[in-house]
Amino acid sequence: MKKLLARGYLVVLLVILYAPILIIAIFSFTEAKVLGNWTGFSTKLYESLFTGGLGNSMVKAIENTITIGLLAALCSTMLGSVAAIGIHNMKGRGRKAITFLNDIPMLNPDIITGISLFILFVAVGVSQGYVTVLLAHISFCTPYVVLTVLPRLRMMNPNIYEAALDLGATPAQALRKVIIPQIRPSMISGFILAFTLSIDDFAVTLFTKGNRGLETLSTYIYADARKGGLTPELRPLMTLIFLAVLALLIIINIRSARNNKQKLIK
């Protein structure tokens, strides 16, 4: 009885948590303008999502989201991995200072990060657009990359690097042949994490995108929802986003499970 009650509680919570998403997914397969009206099965919304009148601006927004996500992930993975190697070899006050600064973007609410960068760009007089959004995304993604790569470095045997140097490798060679292969798994995890954070962002993008018409998916959806609720085309879009996030999470989890197994074997 007690067990049944406990399980029932979890089930009820899960149903409530997933009901909104499920409703949207179900009604993405019907044409009705008003949500809740079922006018027969149809994939028309999915077709018009990519071809219809909405198509152009939405496809452009999807494109921006993905390119910004990939570029931000790439830059923050490189910046963060190099920084992690540096931080790993630092001691004392310098290390404390940089880890403190590294924590700020993670603890700061999005709106503060967004406004502070907006004020900076305004004060310096940079016109805001693609580049400012990209810089902003790198600034809040890199800390997560650093925190993903650092533990891996700590696990590494420092003697291997020294051995490579003793055997005549230049520091650059030792980096390429010794350090990078060892931290590669965590660099890839960091990259995926940064990409997920970037495509998920709304607040920071909103403040740094300027007013020359640059939109990412989330700002596009926001502008659309403000005009008058949910356009039907958003239903298939939200369904697809949900599936994409689900896929990314499964990949991250399989990867971390595999890494854990490797650790156990060692």
Binding site: I23, F27, A225, M238, L248
Partner: peptide
């Protein structure tokens, strides 16, 4: 992990 904006719109739905 799902955008809060999307979750909110889902609630509206």
């Amino acid at each position: 992990w799902i955008n809060m904006l999307i979750r909110t719109l889902a609630t509206v739905a």
